[in-house]
Simulated assay, not measured.
Amino acid sequence: MSGSNQVPYLLRAARGEVLDRPPVWMMRQAGRYMKVYRDLREKYPSFRERSENPDIAIEISLQPWRAFRPDGVIMFSDILTPLPGIGIPFEIIESKGPIIDNPIRTLEQVNQLHTLEPDESTPFIRTILQTLRQEVGNEATVLGFAGSPWTLAAYAVEGKSSKDYAVIKHLAFTQPEILHAFLGKLADAIAVYLCHQIDCGAQVVQLFDSWAGQLSPQDYDVFALPYQQQVIRQVKAVHPDTPMILYISGSAGVLERMGQSGVDIVSVDWTVDMADARRRLGPNIGVQGNIDPGVLFGSKAVIRDRIIDTIRKAGNRGHILNLGHGILQRTPEENAAFFFETAKQADQLLAAT
Score class of each variant (00 low, 15 high):
F223A: 02
G253P: 03
R38M: 15
I58G: 01
L246N: 02
Q218Y: 06
H170C: 11
H170V: 02
D55I: 07
T81V: 15
Y155N: 14
P123T: 09
V136K: 01
V263C: 15
T127A: 14
I93K: 06
G250K: 02
D39V: 10
K185L: 09
R279S: 14
Y37H: 05
I168E: 06
K313Q: 15
Q228H: 07
E334Q: 08
Y227A: 05
T342S: 13
R257L: 15
P243V: 05
N53A: 12
G97Q: 05
W25A: 14
Q345F: 00
G184I: 06
S162L: 08
V235D: 01
F90I: 13
K300S: 12
P243N: 04
Y37F: 15
P89V: 10
T242S: 07
V222K: 00
A346L: 13
T151A: 12
W270M: 14
Q203G: 10
H325R: 00
D119W: 08
D101F: 11
G298H: 08
L186W: 06
L80M: 13
G137W: 01
G97F: 04
V204Y: 02
L113C: 07
F297H: 06
Y193M: 04
D273A: 15
S216F: 02
G318Q: 06
N316E: 13
K43V: 14
I100T: 06
A336K: 05
N316Y: 05
Q214C: 12
K35G: 13
L246T: 00
R32F: 09
C200E: 01
E177F: 11
A30D: 12
V266E: 02
L323C: 09
I303A: 11
G16S: 08
A237T: 08
I311Y: 04
V254S: 02
I79D: 00
F173D: 01
R15E: 01
L143I: 15
E42T: 14
F338I: 03
V266G: 00
Q130A: 15
E341S: 15
Q228C: 11
A30P: 10
E120K: 15
V238M: 09
S4Y: 01
E108L: 13
P98D: 10
I86D: 04
G289F: 08
L194T: 03
P98F: 10
A146R: 12
I79K: 00
D188W: 05
A336M: 10
A153P: 05
P226C: 13
G259P: 06
S77A: 14
